[in-house]
């Protein structure tokens, strides 16, 4: 029986004795399952947001709080960061010079951090005129949903820094490669979740 072409869903690094021995296929598959259970958490927070968006308790409303322009810029930042991470993965797959890999990873990190800074700025603006989570159920749900996403982005940025450290320490050995693939999947999931946030939270808020 010949080996199947695609060892796991997503970008494959191709046949490598080292990767097979360290179980790249299982490792990536397991991470996919983890992402699914993480996606359940986001789905539930979306559902909670949906039921609570009307619970403004006479306070700020989606229309009064959401600014489409910064949210749109944040969307562009994250989408671009997915592209740069994809480019970093390809640099890893084709063993491009280390400098190229670091360049793309650095760009991804920069975009992620900029996103976080802009989101923090959004929060600060809202807090400045009293739209704090303790004000209403709607704001609680908004902060929990976007906050959990922001927390994921922050964790991903931190993880990226750790991965750069591992590349410096070990080069691209099997485990570093597997973990970079996993981080890539994580990063792309955050993008998808953000697109849902942009559509469900911000765009719907603007047309209300």
């Amino acid at each position: 029986m010949s080996e199947p072409e695609l060892a796991h869903a997503g970008l494959n690094l191709g046949p490598s004795a080292e990767l097979t021995r360290d179980g790249a296929e299982n490792a990536i598959f397991g991470f996919w399952i983890f992402l699914m259970s993480d996606a359940v958490i986001f789905a539930l927070l979306f559902a909670t947001y949906g039921t609570m968006v009307a619970g403004t308790a006479g306070g700020p409303t989606p229309a009064s709080e959401f600014k489409l322009l910064p949210a749109f810029v944040e969307t562009l930042l994250l989408l671009t960061s997915s592209a740069t991470f994809g480019r970093a993965s390809i640099a890893m797959k084709y063993a491009e010079p280390r400098r190229t890999l670091f360049g793309w990873l650095g760009a991804t990190l920069g975009l992620g951090l900029t996103f976080l800074a802009l989101e923090a700025n959004d929060y600060a603006t809202m807090v400045a005129h009293g739209a704090v989570p303790s004000r209403s159920g709607f704001l609680s749900a908004f902060y929990a949903l976007t906050g959990l996403h922001g927390l994921h982005v922050a964790v991903a940025c931190f993880w990226l820094v750790v991965m750069v450290g591992q590349v410096l320490a070990y080069g691209l050995d099997a485990r570093v490669k597997i973990n970079l693939l996993r981080l890539g999947l994580f990063w792309h999931l955050l993008d998808i979740v953000w697109i849902a946030i942009f559509s469900v939270v911000y765009l719907q808020g603007a047309i209300r």
Partner: peptide, 17 residues
Amino acid sequence: LDRYADFHFFTNDLGGN
């Protein structure tokens, strides 16, 4: 979050459910 940070997910008041 409700208990520690005064969120209003499940409270009686302020839009909790």
